[in-house]
Amino acid sequence: MSSNIDLLTHLRHWLHAHPELSRHEGETARHLRGFLIEHAPPDAIIPLQGAGFAAVYNGRAADKTVLFRCELDALPIHEINTGIAYSSVYDGVGHKCGHDGHMAIMAGLALCLANRPDRGRVVLLFQPDEETGTGARSCVQHQNFAQIEPDYVFALHNLPGFPAGAVICKTGTFASEVKYAAIKMTGKEAHSAQPETGHSPAIALADLMLCAQQIQARYDRPDAYALAVPVYTQMGVQASGVAPAQGEVHFTVRAALAATVQQMWQDLRDHATTLAEQYGLNVTFETREDFAATTNGQAGFDMIQQAAVVTGRPFQKLDQPFRWGEDFGELTKRYEGAMFGLGAGQSQPALHNPDYDFPDEILPDGIEMFRALVAIVTA
């Protein structure tokens, strides 16, 4: 096992040093396919959307199909970990969500499957575009996914702030429903000395951002949180004499339940429409990203808890879902299964921080959890 971990650590470091953004993961996918073909040749490699692909390992006897998913993409965050030999070679791009570690864990599972499982079929989904919320959806909607049709689906996500190697899970919503959307307003330019002769979106956009706080307060509760957060705004040109005609504000709206997100977004749309009428503006709405809530079924949760017991790893049941979005929800709303968290260490920097680096010491924990789930599903 130690030689395999050395091999997987080297793979993880290469992936960390060569991060690729969503929809641009071609070299990452090629490197992983090459690793599998050399070290754990699958029975089939199924091309999916974009850089996505699935590696299939058929058991010696027919049984259920279990799918495991990892993500290929990195983030537009500049790495500040200058003290590591494998820091990102690309300015402004880094594996700051730990997807390099998730890929290495999946490759480790492939090494365990090289001699084939006793029963069933194991599918390893190397999925692109997770950070945009589009990758899982595009993969399951791809015509080739009909060759897979899993009985169970599983994924993990590393979790800084939890003990290294601990397993964290819950039934119901594990990761939140998230909508990222833009509201754009257009009026008429005017001289800034005579703003009344035009139609500026300035006051309407300011009002809309303040209204987001009121909408959030309307739905946020101790037992079911809700957030409506302005994340970007742009208006006008850099000229002292021009009162602007155009502006936009972007929001992320998130909650444990899809219905809550939909209602908050509708409230924002309604208020924006009212403001546009009041200030003589045109208004348009654009949804940029949608993350379906990752909802864990009872059977999937039970299997994860059983795998933690079998592998001797501490198990923690969550009371509340995580606030971040995860597009694995596109799989859990179609198939039985669940996602779990894998503790990355209590002193680790948080996800999406510029100094985050996936801890190599938890690679065996993820691999052993996935191996145990294969055995449980096909028992």
Rank of each mutant, 00 (worst) to 15 (best):
A217Y: 07
A217M: 06
A217E: 14
A217V: 06
A217W: 05
R218F: 12
R218W: 06
R218V: 06
R218I: 04
Y219I: 06
Y219Q: 04
Y219T: 10
Y219K: 04
Y219W: 12
D220M: 02
D220R: 15
R221D: 12
P222L: 09
D223W: 14
Y225L: 13
Y225I: 12
Y225T: 15
Y225A: 11
A226Y: 10
A226S: 14
L227H: 09
L227R: 14
L227V: 08
L227N: 15
A228Y: 05
A228P: 06
A228I: 14
A228D: 13
V229I: 11
V229E: 07
V229T: 04
V229Y: 03
P230A: 12
P230S: 14
Y232K: 10
Y232G: 05
Y232R: 14
Y232S: 09
Y232Q: 12
Y232D: 09
T233V: 02
T233A: 11
T233P: 00
T233Y: 00
M235N: 02
G236E: 00
G236I: 01
G236T: 00
V237D: 05
V237Q: 07
V237R: 13
Q238R: 01
Q238G: 00
Q238S: 02
A239Q: 03
A239W: 01
S240F: 15
S240Q: 14
G241T: 14
G241C: 07
G241E: 01
V242R: 00
V242N: 00
V242G: 00
A243I: 15
A243F: 09
P244Q: 06
P244I: 02
A245H: 06
A245T: 03
A245C: 15
A245P: 10
A245I: 06
Q246S: 13
Q246T: 10
Q246A: 07
G247R: 07
G247C: 05
G247Q: 02
